[in-house]
């Protein structure tokens, strides 16, 4: 007799992975360009685009908060899922340990982001 089938909880992680993948594909390159190239090199954008008062106002705005939270949390879940499966592919089958480490750090990052965004006020 074969063991009865156990329902996989993968859809939770797969959905977060998918959402993060979609978001990073849509806005990841743009964010890299703005924060990593355009501003440091003084291209296209006003020099004070990411100045402290502007970014604070952005993070205190309800929509800005949501944006920052989605980018940090979903990117993390996407990365955690990809790293977890890549570990498996290169022969590291740490199982629960790797799972806890990968998804645990994504969860930790998510909680820290949520806390920081709430702490910074509205």
């Amino acid at each position: 007799m074969k063991a009865p089938l156990k329902r996989s909880n993968a859809p939770i992680f797969w959905a977060l992975f998918g959402a993060g993948g979609m978001l990073s594909a849509l806005i990841g390159p743009m964010l890299v360009f703005i924060t990593g190239l355009a501003l440091p090199l003084g291209l296209l954008l006003p020099a004070d685009t990411m100045s402290y008062p502007k970014m604070l106002a952005f993070a205190q705005n309800f929509i800005g908060k949501g944006f920052i939270f989605a980018v940090i949390a979903l990117f993390l879940w996407h990365a955690a899922h990809r790293i977890f499966h890549s570990l498996h592919d290169i022969g590291i089958h740490a199982g629960t340990g790797a799972k806890l480490l990968c998804y645990g750090s994504a969860l930790l990052g998510t909680l820290i982001a949520a806390y920081a965004l709430l702490a910074i006020g509205f």
Partner: peptide
Amino acid sequence: MELINSEEGVFNCT
């Protein structure tokens, strides 16, 4: 679908 949803199912695919 029980098989698809199970630990032996589609989520093994990368």
